[in-house]
Write a protein that binds this DNA or RNA. Structure first.
Lengths: 147, 147
DNA sequence: CTTTTTGCAAAGCGTTTGCATTGAA
DNA sequence: TTCAATGCAAACGCTTTGCAAAAAG
């Protein structure tokens, strides 16, 4: 499942770029190629260190901006993390989150079915589970109106 | 449900502090009191601005460290956000995340049942949904062994 | 040729640290 | 009276910005 994707992905990568009027530069190729090999949700800095091994002249800045660009055209995802900027939640009841990708709002919602979600056995064995939450991403009411 | 909690929570807050050998200072009281009123997952900076209105001599630093302390004793939660430090995900297949609260690792997992989760009607109406993900928090294998 | 993109350097923003002072227990 | 908590200031890490040079289409 992983093997067959690399070459194919490079094709579709070029396609994707063209569709969004992005120029296909060696830097972008290198970044994308490395990215799809990474199995651990790298930060910009991690990517930079990796890519520099094969592309010593590349700048951190290009890596960083390219990743942002890629996520803007939906080629990759920015994933939820626990790091900076931290946000705190005093709500200790079981609840779930809606994230607005536009304005960054995080909105609580409640749902009994989602509260009772079954965690895969696999996960229970490998890890010590402390909490489970459903995170939905999209546009909140006011951001939807603005488009 | 919200009304009846405030007074009660202040009691249990003091309790919670004593249990963890934390001194009950005016600053901590003010921070906790404000925090449970906030409905929007504030950042440290947001909290600082709010609390300063009623407690002008408080420092940002105290607010920031107090929030960290509160989350360490489980009084509040640090929630997943999309901000700094950003991490990127080239995996565009349907998948879910396990977050290690100790080392910050984010581990993919796959589960067909979770993929097919039903989103509450309420949410579908209020927002434009782009993606749904289950986020499980806990300790990963290697962090569990270290304790 | 035109328009992006790159690389660099500086600035910005949020968090963390060390230390002397203050205050809760 | 003791030890934790506070406030301050400096340091740190990651991200963002502006601009001139380079390169893709």
């Amino acid at each position: 499942m992983q093997e067959r994707t690399t070459e194919h992905s490079l094709d579709s990568f070029v396609h994707h770029c063209r569709q969004h009027h992005l120029k296909v530069t060696p830097q972008r190729m290198a970044i994308y190629k490395k990215l799809i090999q990474m199995k651990n949700h790298p930060s910009a800095d991690t990517m930079f260190r990796e890519i520099r091994k094969e592309f010593p002249s590349i700048s951190f800045d290009t890596v960083n901006r390219t990743l942002i660009t890629f996520s803007e055209i939906g080629l990759i995802d920015i994933i939820e993390g626990l790091a900076n900027q931290r946000r705190y939640d005093p709500n200790t009841h079981d609840h779930h989150h809606f994230h607005c990708v536009q304005c960054g709002a995080i909105i609580d919602f409640y749902d009994d079915v989602l509260n009772g979600l079954e965690i895969p056995d696999d996960i229970q064995k490998r890890f010590t589970v402390q909490s489970t939450r459903v995170v939905i991403k999209g546009l909140c009411g006011s951001c939807r109106e603005k488009t």
